[in-house]
């Protein structure tokens, strides 16, 4: 059974005024089962530590069965809609190449997109009714015309090195963390809180997180 017991979150710790004025929209695009929900939950935990308002919008049910899933995270002094509008994502983490293409419209000018080079071929491609697009990263890069940062990493390989293919989400968050002003200890404490119910998984996930940082430094 799914664990719906949320770990207690320690209260906001920030005293840094620049962090209090932080305002970020982060989109997590992937395929059902890739761990975007946990990544969203972790970003929510980070936001609370920063003393920010936050909304994380998830996708459950039918649409999750190997389908395209999008998780939106919005943080700031006050957040209304849980949905990120087209052209307003500061960051777009694509856990899969085709999903990078599908959700690239969310990215705003001067935003950053981090793409995991993993390819998960959808049914129409497997059936030979559609082609999996080639060179997705460079296609997106030219469509952004130099006005956004498009990065590709092999998060799956890094996750496997850390000890589990399921840690792709932590690699992606590690890569993201390099481009934010949020200090490392906020991230590490959030990893430990999100996995508090499964302490065995903490070392693997922390390591995967750091591998993600190393990949983009």
């Amino acid at each position: 059974m799914t664990n719906h017991v949320s770990p207690p979150v320690s209260p906001a710790k920030t005293t840094d005024k620049s962090l209090e004025s932080l305002r970020m929209n982060i989109a997590l695009a992937g395929v059902g089962g890739q761990g975007t929900l946990v990544a969203g939950k972790l970003l929510g935990t980070v936001a609370i530590k920063l003393g920010l308002d936050v909304k994380v919008s998830e996708v459950h049910g039918m649409s999750q069965r190997g389908g395209s899933v999008i998780t939106y995270v919005r943080m700031g002094s006050k957040v209304f809609s849980p949905i990120i509008e087209a052209g307003t994502a500061d960051f777009c983490l694509a856990f899969e190449e085709l999903e990078a293409l599908r959700w690239s419209g969310l990215l705003k000018t001067s935003g950053t997109m981090i793409i995991n080079s993993q390819k998960i071929r959808p049914l129409p491609v497997l059936m030979g009714k559609a082609q999996y697009p080639q060179e997705i990263r460079s296609v997106i890069e030219s469509a952004a015309d130099g006005k956004a940062r498009i990065i590709e990493i092999d998060a799956l390989a890094a996750a496997l090195t850390a000890g589990s293919p399921r840690a792709v989400n932590m690699v992606m968050l590690g890569a993201l963390s390099i481009f934010t002003d949020i200090p490392l200890d906020y991230w590490e404490e959030s990893v430990m809180e999100v996995f508090a119910g499964k302490p065995k998984l903490i070392p693997i996930n922390l390591q995967a997180f750091h591998f993600g940082r190393d990949l983009v430094r």
């Binding site: 069965r65 509008e85 085709l98 997106i140 030219s142 469509a143 015309d145 956004a148």
Partner: peptide, 23 residues
Amino acid sequence: PNPASVVSQEILPVAPARPPVMC
């Protein structure tokens, strides 16, 4: 006006749909 994406969608190839499937 509504915000516009930095990634011009018109010039991108079509992303094949990813319908849910049996596991």
